[in-house]
Amino acid sequence: MDDRRRAILEEIPRLRRYARALLRDADRADDLVQDCLERALGHLDNWRTGESPRKWLFTIMHHLFVDQMRREKRRGEAAMLPLDGHEAMSVAADQTEDAASREVLQALQAISPERRAAILMVSVEGFSYAEASVILGVPAGTLMSRIARGRDDLRALLEDGARRRSIRVVDR
């Protein structure tokens, strides 16, 4: 295997992590990663020498994600569900997932895709604002406002969840 393919292979764990957080469902997330890898392999010439494979791959995946979100919106569907709709819907994602993780990942799904992507890029994937701006194709100011609003959304959702839980406890 040549160096470029090896470099791409090494990025798969991160791409999967990002896709999983974006889409929640493991199959759909890996579908996105697969599309991204296929696209990347088909356009190896577009990978400029010296450019970080990570940024290049995340940029490709972001474009695919945006396309997917746009299509779903146009169709007015909650999701494009390949093969087994019911499986994807009943997010039985991972048995080992604890309650806090489940809660935060579910809350994340309720946030707009643009804000979700922005938060994940910097908070989880550790890209700088400058890098994330380039990958997401938005000015730094837009990125910052997406991060701030996304975090507000997330906080509100989590507080809401906590409040509902405490009400349930009181009810008993």
């Binding site: 798969i12 992590r17 999983r20």
Partner: peptide
């Protein structure tokens, strides 16, 4: 919380369909 929630994903064995 976010980081912890997906930290495990990067440790999973890679699905063959991707490699």
């Amino acid at each position: 919380l976010l980081r912890a929630a997906v930290a495990g994903v990067a440790e999973e064995p890679l699905p063959e369909r991707l490699t």
